Computed example of a mutant assay.
Amino acid sequence: MTNRNKAKGDKYERDVLEVARRSGFPWAERTRPGRREDQGDIHLCPGVTIQAKDVATPDWRAWLTQLEQQKRAAGMPHGALVVKRRGAGGRPPLHLAVMTLDSLLALLVDAGWGDADAIPANPPHCFVCHRDDPPPRPHGCGPDCHTTDADQELADTIAREGDHA
């Protein structure tokens, strides 16, 4: 990574941190860079880590895999990617919070908005195909999982058509 890209990434982390603090998370803090185990960029609140991304071409699959590894390293059950989508035609940039559906539902259950008793003791790897048998990958799904195909389709669509915000 060039110094210019690092500076851009560091600035975006500071921007995200500032927004988080203004939005009711005064104790949010940046993690220390250069740690042996990456724990994400920002610890938003107990149990939630954020990975900030300001790049022209998204790599959703790799980023979601990295996010899962960062959550484990930080000992946090929840995490999100915060991705800056550049504006076009004079429009301001769009800041997206991205996580898998399983992660969103787990976060909402932990926040008290779901029925934790309704969650099966051994949920399937994939909420779409309900397969229990694919070999696990870092994000929990097998190589033929519909979830990974949907993630790639979303990434391809956004790259091809833009965010149309």
Rank of each mutant, 00 (worst) to 15 (best):
H146D: 14
Y12H: 14
G142F: 07
A118T: 07
V128Y: 12
G47Y: 12
L67E: 01
C145D: 07
T100L: 13
R32T: 09
A97I: 04
N122F: 04
H125D: 04
P124M: 02
D102F: 05
G112H: 14
P124L: 05
A52N: 06
L94I: 14
G112R: 13
E161V: 04
A73S: 12
S103H: 04
D132A: 14
R32F: 00
R36I: 12
D59G: 10
T49H: 02
A73Q: 02
P33N: 10
L17E: 07
R22V: 02
L94W: 12
T31C: 00
T148A: 13
A28P: 08
E18H: 10
I42N: 08
H139M: 14
G24A: 01
L108Q: 13
I42E: 07
E37Q: 15
A80W: 06
D117S: 06
L64V: 04
A116I: 06
L17A: 03
Q70I: 00
W63G: 09
G24H: 02
I158A: 03
A73H: 10
A28V: 06
N3F: 08
P58R: 08
R32Q: 07
Q69V: 11
A7S: 10
V19A: 15
T31E: 02
L107N: 09
C145W: 03
L96W: 06
A116H: 11
R131M: 12
